[in-house]
Amino acid sequence: MPNPVVRWQILSPTPDKVAGFYQKLFDWKLSQANALGYRELTSGDKAGADGGVWPAPPGVNGFVQLFVEVPDVDAAITKALSLGGKVLVPKSVLPDGDTMAVLHDPTGISFGVCALKKRA
């Protein structure tokens, strides 16, 4: 399993502004038609990864997270912990069926691991 980077996420104190900027800059499709109201940005191209924008915690400046698809989120968390990583957001099953967790590497950089629900 190659464990590819499949998603990116911007966390921003001004999510509307950021999402609108990238949508206009790259002619991406912006949609919030999901149970979380998550701002999904998609290029419509199979090449590259799609992403989205989520509100940043209070007092935190904007930053980017990359999400790596893994076969087993629990196993990825366990391995990350054994390598000195930390759990920031515990494993969660999102309304669309995808499973994700956000971790810190040993230097404090955050990233996500996810198992995407198979879609028709």
Partner: peptide
């Protein structure tokens, strides 16, 4: 956005768990 920030806060602190959709 306030709701989603709050959900993020609750999940990070282990006060809420998204077990399934």
């Amino acid at each position: 956005d306030s709701v989603n920030s709050a959900l993020d806060h609750l999940i990070r602190h282990g006060d809420l768990v998204m077990e399934s959709p």
